[in-house]
């Protein structure tokens, strides 16, 4: 490695570390608060002081008192099918809008994009009524179907733009080989869209996991509700206990973080594929 290269890499790490530290400052506060006892939090106003002893007591208390295990399971039951459903149907729709020429193509795309722009709080009443009418109120399916539908607006827009960059020659070549259109979608389009699907999957997972409103509007039974609703009741219960609220918040945030870590590799994969050719 040349001297210049070492210097360059060194300064990259230095800058990256400084940026990350500044960037994570608010989380640092939440993190240390979760380890501090309340008397430390109240009496010691200096945030840069580390907790006296690192104890996971408050994490445990948040987990047990907040009844988080049940809420966690619910969040998974809601989030996983919602994300898969939204991605799958949006990829189909996005493919149709990106690679086929037909009348009203742009209009349909426009409607999908436009639907995503409504301030969704406004949809509380109608969506509640529709779920009720179909008999889905107070079931997981009500929340899942709504998430899939609403998120499709953004996902179709997103995937359509990425699928457009796939060379049409590739598809035509498969057609010559006699592949059906759906086969082309499964065997050519989906694999080539992987980095985009990974990014979208990460974002969608995070949003749906963090949704609060619809879990509350469409579910009545406490044993069906997602972790965000649990967190808000935790906030209600431990108003003055910042450490427990912090701990609960960090536990809830851990899952989307893990998903990001898992899917991140697809970001690099694209580059590596290019490099190895």
């Amino acid at each position: 490695m040349s001297k210049k290269r070492i210097l360059w890499v060194g300064s990259f790490y230095l800058i990256a570390i400084v940026i990350s530290l500044i960037w994570l400052f608010p989380l640092f506060i939440a993190g240390t608060t979760a380890f501090k006892s309340m008397s430390e939090v109240v009496q010691d106003v200096y945030w840069w002081n580390l907790p006296d002893n690192f104890t996971f007591k408050y994490f445990l208390e948040a987990w047990n008192q907040g009844g988080m295990s049940r809420y966690f399971l619910n969040s998974f039951i809601i989030t996983v099918p919602s994300v898969i459903g939204a991605l799958f149907f949006s990829a189909l729709g996005g493919f149709a809008l990106a690679k086929y020429r037909f009348k009203y193509n742009k209009l349909i795309l426009g409607i999908f994009i436009a639907g995503n722009m409504i301030p969704f709080q406004m949809m509380m009443f109608p969506v509640f009524r529709i779920s009720n009418l179909i008999g889905l109120y107070d079931t997981y399916l009500a929340v899942i179907l709504f998430h899939i539908s609403f998120q499709m607006g953004f996902c179709i827009f997103f995937l359509r733009n990425f699928i457009r960059t796939i060379p049409t020659d590739l598809l035509d070549a498969a057609r010559v080989d006699g592949s059906s259109e759906f086969r082309i979608f499964l065997q050519i389009v989906l694999p080539l869209t992987k980095p985009a699907l990974a990014a979208l999957g990460i974002l969608e997972f995070t949003w749906i996991w963090n949704d609060y409103l619809w879990g509350l509007v469409l579910l009545a039974s406490d044993n069906l509700r997602p972790v965000t609703v649990g967190l808000v009741s935790l906030q209600g219960e431990y108003l003055s206990k910042w450490n427990i609220i912090s701990a609960g918040s960090l536990i809830a945030a851990a899952v989307p973080l893990i998903v990001f870590l898992l899917f991140q590799r697809y970001f690099i994969q694209g580059l590596m594929m290019g490099a190895s050719k």
């Binding site: 039951i77 996983v80 099918p81 898969i84 459903g85 799958f88 079931t139 997981y140 989906l190």
Partner: peptide, 19 residues
């Protein structure tokens, strides 16, 4: 992709079971 589709079907089954 097959895995994705089948996992989707499985999840739906699990949900209907719970319901």
């Amino acid at each position: 992709m097959k895995r994705l589709t089948s996992s989707f079907v499985v999840t739906l089954l699990v949900i209907s079971f719970i319901m």
